[in-house]
Amino acid sequence: MSIKVLSPGLLTSIQDLGRYGYQKYGVIVSGGMDTYALRLANLLVGNKEGEATLEMTLMGPSLLLEADLLLAITGGDLSPTINGESVPQGRPVLVRKGSVLKFGALKSGCRSYLAVRGGYDIPEVMGSKSTYLRAKIGGYQGRALLQGDILPVRCSSPLSLAESLEKTMGSRSFAFPSWYVGKSYVSETSQEYKVRVIPNSQFPLFSPDSRKQLFQQPFQVTTQSDRMGYRLSGASLQLTEPLEMVSEAVALGTIQVPPDGNPIILLADRQTVGGYPKIAQVAGADISTVAQIKPGSRIWFVEISLAEAERLYAAREADIQRITITVQSQLAGITT
């Protein structure tokens, strides 16, 4: 079982939930940018939620499915089609061998995830299948996908749902159930997004004006944004007085401010340590929203307390737990 890459898209790479435990050796975490969408994609095909998926960015690939496959697409809407026919997101889709899954124009979001039943059969490196692009390790030969690549897919026991889809499929090239899970982000037509942040312990070191500016005007996501981080432009944020700072660890969602005053939100491919002052920390529950914001859009930061961030985090996990239960019962053929 395999998938052949007919055209690779802009940046298509294998990502799972990341490589943990090696940051102290300078090995970055990597992993999916929108881990909520990534987990959903896996749940929808009955995989473990942390299985490797294909992360597709802005412009998706064209893929030839060389076997009957059960797959799921989540996250940003890259107008996926199978043999030219529109295919829905957020649900398991059984697809016939020989079909072409093609991603087209970006309709909303920024990144889309493709999970296949059984997962991509590639080796783990340091406990993860995520592609660490700069060090060229993990994923598919340590790099983004290229034309002609063949992605092996692991065999897995058939799901009851796939069997019933098979029966209703007839001569069509794909079939899907009448239920789906909602999008991982709120698509905004205004191109403006609210992102909740917790002030960092270095927040008071910024000038009173900069501290106000952070919440009183929007910041634009520039085109110099990538998997490592989003570079923002807006008010120039400045410290009250120069700070002698030595490098220390950074985290997913850390907003650091280099001397030019333009904040950077650190994301999946962030380095393990950084030497710039940190003004705030994006709430874990809003990281997936950030991951779906494309360059040119604007972010309004909203201040929340640590207690609120913890509550949001727990609420998000509870949501995923609910989805897991309902989806698993649907996949096992327990219908309501």
């Binding site: 090696y22 102290k24 030595v246 220390e248 660890a249 393990t272």
Partner: peptide
Amino acid sequence: MIEYVSAFSSVTIFYNPMKVR
């Protein structure tokens, strides 16, 4: 604890908040 990162003068511990809860 998930992992820690040690630096010049500090240590940062990353943890799973759900497990702590």
